[in-house]
Design a protein around this nucleic acid. Structure first.
Lengths: 110, 110
DNA sequence: CTCTTATTTCCATACACATCGAAATGAGGA
DNA sequence: TCCTCATTTCGATGTGTATGGAAATAAGAG
């Protein structure tokens, strides 16, 4: 994962509502949830939620799919996996986020 | 970790410069780096860097310590560990960020 | 006490993000 | 076709973030 991608994903999650949406979608699993269901669950106005969903989608953390009249959103586990992997590799030490054991091992891209 | 804390930490990392600063501090290890050294390494003006360092410090991801005339900054590994743990627990499935196996296991706080 | 170095704070400016009602779009049902 | 539901887009507004030069603060050295 490139650092620009990570910044984008981190920014998408760096908001109370969006983090709540993402957590909800992770819990919902592969089946996902309709936009309206999310708005109801989180008590966020439709237009505001739509804004946040677009932000998450833009960052690649969420997938959109039309099913009948509803737009179903679901978590993109691969993207999240990539983000966590990036953080572990670049922002943590090799073992459990302790101090970095050797300064020589190159993490990733630039 | 509370979701508000996670949002704060995510927001702190959701910026090109701040992410670069944090990565640099992780590489630097426990000894940390002086503000000026960071500014030089990343080619960011002092006043801008100071703003970003304050942001990271505010979020608890970075520690500040005065050593002589210099202010030494170092990564707070515990905070990062907490953030990654939060993401793994709340935003990933139990094993490796795949689809959530059981819908019954409660993640964490609210 | 003054000089020099290291860093922050202040300030103005520009841009991006968040909010949410109202209007527009998309899609099925009668 | 017309109606209704589901959702997005638009638009206006307020708030927050980013930037960087200039001035202020902090601390050791002579």
């Amino acid at each position: 994962m490139q650092s620009a991608t990570a910044v984008s994903a981190l920014g998408a999650l760096a908001n109370e509502h969006r983090l709540a949406v993402f957590r909800l979608l992770v819990q919902a699993g592969e089946d996902g949830l309709a936009a309206g269901a999310i708005a109801t669950a989180l008590a966020v106005p439709n237009s505001s939620l739509s804004f946040h969903l677009a932000h998450l989608t833009q960052a690649g953390l969420v997938k959109q799919e039309r099913r009948g009249r509803s737009l179903i959103y679901s978590a993109n586990y691969a993207a999240m996996n990539g983000l966590v992997a990036y953080l572990m590799e670049n922002c943590c030490a090799a073992s459990g986020c302790g101090p970095r054991p050797t300064a020589g091992d190159a993490p990733a891209e630039q």
